[in-house]
């Protein structure tokens, strides 16, 4: 079974020009261990709101690719969020759910996806046209590349093994991350405006 860390490593270089929002726990820790970048924001609590934060970014910055790394435990707390994503269908948003069928960071209690709840099915039935479930690194890489290239909302589920790092607290302070992320976007939008003025 594939591991989330391998998935992140396989696509890390492609995140350079994206705004990236992750949920708390293993995914935040593992992405930081590959190398933190100012365009990465780790939502270290508020389970369920990673996808909503990504939606707010995507709607306000339609020219900017936004990637959300979500998890089964988090999205199960905000299944209604799938219907909101479907309703507004931001073309610049890629939503990835790492589904390890477990609330890993609290000791590995099984979530409802371990007893058959199908998150891709929920996404699709919510009205998201482009959905996918992947099981291997090759499939993951291909589906992610495709989602980044496509000018449409994609929600994909990556079935991964329930393993993660030993601890979850990292060196990066929450507020430092938050202000750095906002400043990065300010710089992007200022540059885009200047570029627009030059063109005019």
């Amino acid at each position: 079974m594939m591991q989330r860390f391998e998935c992140l490593r396989a696509i890390y270089d492609q995140l350079e020009n994206c705004l990236v929002v992750t949920i708390m726990g293993a995914v935040a820790c593992e992405l930081q261990s590959l190398g933190h970048k100012p365009n990465f924001f780790y939502l270290q609590h508020a389970m369920g709101l990673g996808s909503s934060t990504g939606l707010g970014l995507a709607l306000c910055l339609p020219q900017q690719k936004v990637v959300v790394f979500d998890g089964d435990g988090s999205i199960l707390m905000n299944l209604g969020g799938y219907t909101t994503l479907a309703r507004y269908r931001p073309k610049n948003l890629v939503h990835v759910v790492f589904d390890n069928e477990s609330l890993l960071s609290v000791g590995g209690f099984p979530t409802a996806t371990s007893t058959g709840s199908d998150l891709e099915g929920v996404a699709h039935a919510s009205g998201i046209a482009r959905t996918k479930t992947v099981h291997t690194i090759e499939e993951f890489k291909h589906a992610f590349d495709d989602a980044l290239r496509t000018n449409d909302l994609t929600s994909m589920v990556a079935k991964v093994e329930a393993v993660g790092p030993k601890g979850y607290v990292t060196e990066l302070a929450l507020l430092e991350n938050r202000f750095q992320f906002k400043r990065y976007i300010e710089k992007l939008t200022t540059e885009a405006r200047r570029h627009g003025e030059r063109k005019n």
């Binding site: 508020a46 934060t53 707010g56 995507a58 709607l59 910055l61």
Partner: peptide
């Protein structure tokens, strides 16, 4: 979450 994203986006 949406307001947080909007705030980040200015």
């Amino acid at each position: 979450g949406i307001s947080a994203g909007a705030h980040f986006a200015g």
